[in-house]
Design a binder for these strands. Sequence first.
DNA 1: CCCTAGTCGTCAT
DNA 2: CGACTAGGG
Length: 276
Amino acid sequence: MGITGLLTVLKEAQEPVHISSFKGQTLGIDGYVWLHKGAFGCSQEIALGQDTRRYVNYILKKIEMLRHFQIVPFVVFDGGSLTSKEETEMEREAKKNIQEGLRLFNMGLKKEAQTYFQRGINITPKFAKDVIEELKKKNIQYVVAPYEADAQLAYLEREGTIQGIITEDSDLIVYGCKKIIFKLDDAGNGMLFDRERLGQVRSFSLRGWTDETFRKMCILSGCDYLSSVHGVGLKRSHKYLQRSRDIKQIAENQWIAFHPQIDSENDEIRRVICSG
DNA sequence: CCCTAGTCGTCAT
DNA sequence: CGACTAGGG
């Protein structure tokens, strides 16, 4: 989904942490994030179809850092690729970038080509497969999620298998995760989001809000699954839900009252919100 | 103040 | 993916 501005608006629910505060605990890792960053550093080799282990080594280095601080890593990879419209367009865009990169590369413009190679990175199951091979050798826990890693990580935390999550994706907050480490660097420093601190958020009051209402606020503010309602972000979404927790009421009355331009073209959104 | 859409960085030397 | 920001409402 990717909720625009969510992390910014929830800054009071976050604080700097060092990974060592999770010593002895198991942390779930959003595999896609590290795969993508690792691939970023060897985009040329990937685009040229050359064999490279650099993205594997990148992740192994991160894992070693965690183990140095006695963290037990549990890597979660994405399973079935989404077959949404946006996904195929993203892939098409990626291919175009690779082609442009190859064109520049063949002209000898190596540096200029790299920018396009980096934009054209597309994480395929092969990447995860190569990493998994090494994780097996090192006896590091991992799982390939049936669908999205997000839901799997949320489940693992709820069931107590992991005590926190390492990612860069704010969607984990929407999925109800309690402890999430963002912006983890090589030294083990990061920002910890703690769900218990949601009441300290200053942008708007979330006191007395259930995870369910919070989720609806995020969906209402716009996500990739739906064509979002023009002019409604997190703040206005919060305002509407504060006034009435009945989404159907908001959809049928307030949206149209506040935004007359919204009508039948957003029936799709209405259906999803009301069923959610 | 709020929202949108576009740009840039992610690695690494 | 997020951070940042110019520009419109």
